[in-house]
Structures are given as C-alpha cells and as structure tokens.
Amino acid sequence: MTEGRRERKKQRTRQALIEAAVELFETKGFHETTVAEIAEAADLSTRTFFLHFPTKEDVLLANAEWRLDLGVRAIAERQAGESVADVLRRAAQEMITDAWQTDLPEGLAALRAHLIATVPALQAGLAQRLLAGQKDLIDAVHQAFQPSVIDAAALVGGLLGAINAAALVSVQQGDQPDEVRAAMARAVEIVLGTGDFAPRLG
C-alpha cells in the first residue's frame, strides 16, 4: 500500500470513529458511552480505536493537533517583512478554516461546547490538552520573532483564548457554521488590534 493510500485509509478510520463517538455521546451521554461501543458502532475493533485515540476524551479534540500544526507551519513560512501580527493573523485564519471544514460540520464543535457546559469533569482535561498543544505555537513565535518566551506565550494564549471563547459562545447560542467562523475571525481582529468593537458596545 502506498503512503498516500495508507494515509487516506487512516483518515477514513478516524472519521468513522469520530462520527460514531459524536452520535453515541449525543444519544447515550459521554460518561455512559464506552470505547468498545464507539468501536463497535464504527465496525472496528477496540484495539483500532486506541491506535487512533488514547482515550475517548481525545475524540473531542480529534483535529486539534493537526490544526495547531497548520498554525506552526504558517509561522515557519513567514515572508520577509511580515509583522508578528500579520503572521499570527494568517496562522489563525488557516486554523479557523480547518475548524470550519471539520469540527463544525462534523458536530464536534457543538458537542464539545455542550459537554464543557454540562460535564464539569471534562473542563479541566480539555483545558489541559489545549494548553499543552499551545506550546509548539509559542515556540514557533519565539523562534521566528525572538520575543521573550513570556511575551510569545501571552500573544499565543491571548489569540487562541479569544478564538476559543468566541467559538464557544457562538456555538452555544446556536449559530450556523458560517456565523461561528465569522465570530472566530472577529476575535482575531479584536486581539490583533484592528477590530473596532466600540460601536457594538454602545
């Protein structure tokens, strides 16, 4: 099997597991759903599940690692003369587009928002995973622009925090995928200094 075919098969398997998990979490409940049930619903083995996801909690962040890699790559591929704001804006746009193409249509974003609001035990675990994933972005900003690590952490944390918060509220109030995407994009502009939100507060 070629590398390309192998990767496509891997993605199909992951997708089947994600879809099965989303449906079971919504119908049975997160805590009531077992890994074995997810695997069975996807017509796969429990062993196959664990080859793709360490725990059922990790299904909720199924695309997060890839999405953060997109951001890191955008920073690494910065063009001469681009400011840190320009590069972070481009990185954020790529990550938002990926979320719009995956988490939003798959129902992962809505499910995650619901579970965060209703299952307190999940909040700490998801937050810890997201914070761990930010490290590569922080390192990329630090290496590219040479601010202090603390300044790089503040930039990345502020940007991702704003995007996640805007997405969460938008999803919770029932917005459509395009509206959620617009909310995340607006959060980017507010954080990076170009968002004029004062009139909306008046």
Rank of each mutant, 00 (worst) to 15 (best):
1 M>F: 07
3 E>I: 10
5 R>H: 04
14 R>W: 06
14 R>A: 07
17 L>I: 05
18 I>R: 04
18 I>F: 04
20 A>L: 02
21 A>Y: 07
23 E>Q: 14
24 L>V: 06
24 L>P: 04
24 L>R: 11
35 V>F: 00
37 E>I: 08
38 I>T: 06
43 D>V: 06
45 S>C: 07
46 T>M: 01
49 F>A: 02
49 F>T: 00
52 H>Y: 12
52 H>F: 06
57 E>K: 06
64 A>V: 13
68 L>I: 15
68 L>Y: 15
70 L>S: 05
75 I>N: 01
75 I>T: 00
79 Q>R: 12
81 G>T: 02
84 V>N: 09
87 V>T: 03
89 R>A: 10
89 R>S: 10
90 R>Y: 00
92 A>T: 08
93 Q>T: 13
93 Q>S: 15
94 E>V: 14
98 D>R: 15
99 A>S: 14
99 A>I: 15
100 W>E: 15
104 L>P: 00
104 L>G: 01
104 L>K: 09
104 L>I: 03
105 P>A: 03
105 P>E: 00
111 L>S: 07
115 L>H: 09
117 A>W: 05
119 V>E: 14
124 A>L: 11
133 G>I: 05
134 Q>N: 15
135 K>C: 03
135 K>P: 03
137 L>C: 01
140 A>R: 00
142 H>D: 09
143 Q>E: 12
144 A>E: 01
145 F>K: 02
147 P>A: 06
148 S>T: 15
149 V>R: 14
150 I>M: 11
152 A>C: 07
156 V>D: 01
157 G>T: 02
158 G>L: 03
161 G>T: 04
165 A>Q: 14
165 A>P: 09
166 A>K: 03
166 A>G: 06
172 Q>H: 10
173 Q>F: 12
174 G>S: 05
174 G>L: 06
175 D>P: 01
186 R>P: 08
189 E>T: 09
196 D>E: 10
200 R>I: 11
200 R>A: 14
200 R>L: 13
201 L>T: 09
